[in-house]
């Protein structure tokens, strides 16, 4: 028996009919066609599917769509208007924090919560803070740099140079 749920997705309330077993990530991708949220594994290991559920970063492959009933969901498509980059997105672009881009939306959603909880994190805190998100391409150096950049920008302090530290 399908269930009817009400969710607020990127600020817009939606009433959806889903199978009780539907994973939240599949609801987001296949029913709402918000394909910026990715799937990279089947064991809750990679974080590519990370979204915000009532402001908390969660792996949407690990939650049933029905569990989101009455809650609010933010995906990568909802964090900035098209044509503009928010400070985290800008940090990624300025610091080459992405290669293939597949992990990027999940990373950004995780970092969104990280910076809310801890606006001025150390490198060590950033590394632990994103350790639930795998990136196979970047080697993480530049993701860390992107977070530091975003943190500075959001706190209104000057951002560090984005030039590569190539000696």
């Amino acid at each position: 028996m399908n269930k009817v749920i009400t969710v607020t997705v990127n600020g817009v309330q939606q009433v959806l009919e889903v199978e009780p077993r539907t994973l939240l990530v599949h609801m987001i991708r296949e029913i709402l066609n918000l394909t910026g949220t990715h799937i990279g594994c089947d064991t809750s290991s990679c974080g590519a599917c990370t979204i915000l559920l009532d402001g908390k970063s969660v792996k949407s492959c690990t939650i049933l769509a029905v569990q989101a009933n009455g809650k609010s969901i933010t995906t990568i498509e909802g964090i900035s208007t098209e044509g503009e980059l928010n400070p985290i997105q800008e940090g990624f672009k300025e610091n080459h924090g992405l290669h293939c881009g597949f992990c990027t939306p999940g990373m950004i959603m995780r970092i969104t919560e990280l910076l809310k909880d801890n606006p001025d994190p150390t490198e060590e805190e950033i590394r632990w803070g994103i350790s639930g998100n795998l990136c196979r391409c970047t080697g993480y150096n530049n993701i860390v740099k992107a977070v530091l950049y975003a943190s500075a920008k959001m706190r209104g302090v000057p951002t560090a140079s984005t030039e590569p530290e190539f000696v």
């Binding site: 910026g36 498509e77 098209e82 990624f92 672009k93 992405l98 293939c100 881009g101 990027t104």
Partner: peptide, 12 residues
């Protein structure tokens, strides 16, 4: 190429 990926608008 970054902008489309940063908005979740890549086409995988």
């Amino acid at each position: 190429e970054d902008v489309r990926f940063l908005h979740g608008k890549g086409h995988y």
